[in-house]
Amino acid sequence: MTWGNHSLLMEFVFLAYPSHPELRASSFLGVSLVYTLIISGNVLIVVAIQTETRLHTPMYYFLGSLSGVEICYTAVVVPHILINILKSQKAITLLGCATQMIFFIGLGSADCFLLVIMAYDRYVAICHPLWYPIIMTLTLCVHLVVASVVIGLFLSLQLTVFIFSLPFCQTRGIEHFFCDVPPVMRLVCANSHIHEQSVLVAATLAIAVPFLLITASYTFIIAAVLKIHSAAGRQRAFSTCSSHLTVVLLQYGCCAFMYLRPSSSYSPKQDQFISLVYTLGTPLFNPLIYTLRNSEMKGAIRRVLTRNCFS
């Protein structure tokens, strides 16, 4: 069986993992701890939003959806990273690499699209409060979440098929922890400029366009908030957006650095560090940001933990 000119059984080898036994042990423990915190924090958010009636609003529905996507997003690569840390031969087949890239990029794109939806939700709530219950219906919320995942996976599928239809060089070593676009593109033996432009177009659709939409939403939000005469009202409006804006800057900053830049600035060590930030750091910080800055979420999570402890 072949995919283009490649055998589906062809293997790539990851070269970024530590070889020293002590470093492997500490890396495994560190990644395991962070992954446990990621899953625990995001699951707590999902459970709290599902069980607390007062949180059955569009804003918290989108927050729960974001946590659900991030659980799946990290599950695509982190367990594989943990296995590779312990293995002596850190290889992956072409088909496995392509599958990992499809879901990693697809769910990461869905993450970005969900942040756009959350910005739109805040825009409607603050700029058109009387129309909010009519516009943000449950049906619309479900459709928006499903659309973000479907579009993300569709764009990812197109990009992955394009990359893996290109001829690869004899070198099979990937200077990374998993199959991400920049390190895999380094193995392509073809007219790199044309293919880099194609990847840049896909990255622009998934990163730059959503960020511009978020910027537009917050421009209207800030203009509306500044018209509020009450200082307490302005503070309450800004506090509902500050957590989301913090997550947006963290998420889009890392993604833009990785995917919206020329290949001449590629640095394996630097990229490996940044990839760990948006693979482990962002899904870890998101629950902390949303819970520490939101009294309703803190109270709901406290009640969930209390019920579980007593039961």
Score class of each variant (00 low, 15 high):
Phe104Ile: 05
Leu245Glu: 05
Tyr132Leu: 02
Gly152Asp: 00
Lys298Cys: 02
Arg122Phe: 00
Pro268Arg: 13
Phe12Gly: 04
Val46Met: 14
Met258Asn: 04
Phe12Pro: 03
Ile81Ser: 01
Leu66Tyr: 08
Val247Lys: 02
Leu130Pro: 11
Thr160Ser: 07
His56Cys: 06
Met185Val: 04
Asp121Val: 13
Leu159Tyr: 04
Ile71Met: 05
Val304Phe: 07
Gly281Trp: 02
Arg234Pro: 02
Ile102Cys: 07
Cys254Ile: 05
His128Thr: 14
Ile92Asp: 09
Val149Asn: 07
Ser198Trp: 14
Asn191His: 12
Phe273Arg: 08
Met1Phe: 09
Gln89Phe: 08
Lys90Met: 06
Val145Pro: 01
Ser275Leu: 08
Leu288Gly: 03
Val248Thr: 07
Gly173Cys: 09
Tyr73Met: 07
Leu63Pro: 03
Lys227Arg: 11
Leu226Gln: 13
Leu153Trp: 06
Leu159Arg: 11
Ile134Asp: 15
His20Pro: 00
Met185Trp: 03
Lys87Ser: 14
Phe103Glu: 05
Thr204Gln: 08
Val116Met: 12
Gly64Val: 01
Ile151Val: 15
Asp180Thr: 14
Thr219Arg: 13
Ile83Trp: 07
His195Tyr: 13
Val124Ile: 15
Ser243Gly: 15
Leu15Trp: 07
Val161Ser: 11
Ser243Lys: 00
Leu23Val: 02
Asn191Trp: 10
Phe103Asn: 03
Gly108Phe: 01
Thr99Tyr: 04
Ala25Arg: 05
Leu95Asp: 08
Ala147Cys: 07
Asn191Phe: 11
Leu29Met: 11
Asn191Ile: 12
His20Met: 06
Ser88Asn: 14
Leu37Met: 14
Pro182Leu: 09
Val124Phe: 02
Cys179Ile: 02
Phe211Trp: 08
Ala232Ile: 02
Gln235Ser: 14
Phe257Asn: 08
Lys269Asp: 02
Ser275His: 07
Phe238Ala: 05
Gly68Arg: 05
His143Trp: 07
Phe310Lys: 13
Leu107Ile: 12
Leu29Phe: 11
Val46Gln: 11
Trp131His: 10
Ala190Phe: 10
Val199Cys: 04
Ile105Gln: 08
Leu94Gly: 06
Ser32Pro: 03
Asp271Val: 04
Ala208His: 03
Arg172Glu: 00
Ile49Trp: 00
Val13Leu: 06
Ile71Tyr: 00
Glu70Ala: 12
Ile135Gln: 10
Leu114Ser: 01
Leu280Tyr: 00
Cys97Ala: 15
Phe113Met: 12
Cys179Met: 05
Ile105Ala: 09
Ile163Asn: 05
Phe220Asn: 08
Asn294Phe: 08
Pro183His: 14
Ile49His: 01
Thr53Pro: 04
Leu66Gln: 09
Ala208Ile: 04
Arg293Gln: 13
Gln197Leu: 08
Asp121Glu: 15
Ala48Gln: 04
Leu66Gly: 00
Pro183Met: 14
Tyr278Ile: 11
Gly299Phe: 01
Thr36Gly: 06
Ile163Trp: 04
Ser40Pro: 03
Leu138Asp: 12
Phe285Val: 12
Ser264His: 09
Val145Phe: 14
Ile163Cys: 09
Glu11Lys: 13
Leu226Glu: 13
Gln272Tyr: 06
Cys189Asp: 10
Ser27Tyr: 04
Ala110Asn: 09
Val277His: 06
Leu86Asp: 05
Val201Arg: 01
Val225Lys: 05
Leu212Phe: 10
Ser242Arg: 13
